[in-house]
């Protein structure tokens, strides 16, 4: 490794405006289940940022095996914004270097309105079909879609219509029992926002914006994301 000349280091790119408050106490790393994985830990990540070795952190696996759970940040005696730092390292990866399906999910959501690309017609058919099944047990039940003036707008986790559709019925049973006024939407119903995980603020904002647009257009009172 080349000697690191602090006088020649680049200006920090990572979001770490408070990192220089770090006392190097190691409380963060001490309480973290993935300390040591990939040869790094949270305390070392802060050191990398301070030394201007941003790229090392950005290229490492560590910001991705970290689950951004925030236990370190909660315990940090200097209240350093450790999650912002680690998430910014994720965000600075080239998008084609984002691990696994996360960025593909973001792209799919921007293109189709949900992470797994379920077409509108299929989705509505599924809701109606499952609704009819539940109505055999709960007389009069149906899934309200795009219902104007409903009190609650519910988003849906695409995992459910994709792989575990019957799990949607838990909420439906509760809403039926409470005789609630609610709806979901035929488009942009995705409640999972992977932009949060990939450090992609622009995508995150766009996806949230679409949900808010639905909410306003339908004139709902509350938005519920059962995540």
């Amino acid at each position: 490794m080349e000697p690191l000349l602090l006088t020649k280091r680049e200006k920090r790119k990572l979001a770490s405006q408070y990192a220089d408050l770090c006392l190097t106490c190691g409380t963060c790393a001490g309480g973290c289940p993935v300390t040591g994985v990939d040869g790094l830990d949270v305390r070392k990540a802060v050191r990398l940022a301070l030394l201007g070795m941003d790229q090392e952190l950005i290229d490492s696996k560590f910001p991705w095996v970290c689950t951004l759970c925030g236990r370190c940040e909660y315990a940090c005696p200097m209240n350093i914004d450790l999650l912002a730092l680690l998430r910014s390292a994720r965000g600075m990866r080239a998008r084609d270097k984002v691990p696994g399906v996360l960025h593909k999910g973001v792209e799919m959501c921007l293109k189709t309105g949900n992470n797994v690309g379920i077409p509108k017609d299929d989705f509505v058919f599924l809701l109606q079909d499952l609704g009819a099944e539940l109505a055999e047990e709960l007389p009069g039940f149906e899934v309200p879609v795009d219902k104007k003036g409903a009190k609650y707008l519910f988003t849906i986790n695409s995992k459910e219509p994709f792989a575990e559709p019957e799990d949607m019925m838990y909420w439906w049973r509760i809403l039926y029992a409470a005789n609630e006024s609610w709806t979901t939407t035929s488009e942009n119903w995705e409640g999972v926002n992977w932009g949060l995980f990939t450090g992609d603020d622009a995508a995150m904002k766009e996806i949230v914006g679409r949900i808010v647009k639905n909410y306003k257009e339908l004139g709902c009172e509350y938005l519920v994301l059962p995540e």
């Binding site: 289940p33 095996v65 951004l68 759970c69 696994g100």
Partner: peptide, 26 residues
């Protein structure tokens, strides 16, 4: 506030680092 994460947060459930995710969950 001091609870331990399940090990799959932050997108780790959908990420390819399966071994690390399981190790985290111990």
């Amino acid at each position: 506030a001091n609870n331990f994460c399940c090990g799959a947060g932050g997108g780790a459930w959908a990420a390819p680092y399966v071994e690390e995710r399981i190790f985290y969950g111990r």
